[in-house]
Amino acid sequence: MEETTKCELVLHINGEQRTVITRQAETLLFVLRDELGLTGTKPGCLNGDCGACTVLVNGTPIKSCMMLAIETVGKEITTIEGLRDTPIQHAFVRHFAFQCGYCTPGFIMNIHALIEQHPNADQSTIQEWLQSNICRCTSYQEIEAAVKEALQAKKTDIQPSHNRISRV
């Protein structure tokens, strides 16, 4: 059995293949941020409690502070940098669903997966999923409105307008 605790990992992130040399004990969060410069994924507690570090692993939301990078070899990782022009990003902007923006990547990743997996999510499903993230700035009411609009957009398949309107 191999002794060294550093290793080379080939990761699939946002559709790209990235190779890193890292500690086997390193969490995905630190590899993303420190090794790969993907700082959109935020540390908030390193303890699984806040959801700021949420990324998708094979489409499932995962708190990247509680998963080893080495566990994700062979899986598709999506971070906030990998999302462009999704319904939930547009809805967040339109509904003022963030203020300081620190919790936002985590929320968006979680909600994006929710919409993909449960396009017909009802109130209790929305609640079950979103309880995993803490926002300290908003009242959650704005986030709730954004989620509902994005679900609607997904359902009716209306493409969000791509120009970035600055007025509501």
Binding site: M1, T4, Q24, A25, L29
Partner: peptide, 25 residues
């Protein structure tokens, strides 16, 4: 963040897992 080093093993069978455990122990 894990503030110490460990090695990560991913056995494919029960027998392999047990054997690894014994060796590492």
């Amino acid at each position: 963040m894990v503030p110490f080093e460990f090695a990560y093993y991913r056995p494919q069978s029960i027998a392999e897992a047990v054997a690894m455990f014994i060796e590492l122990e």
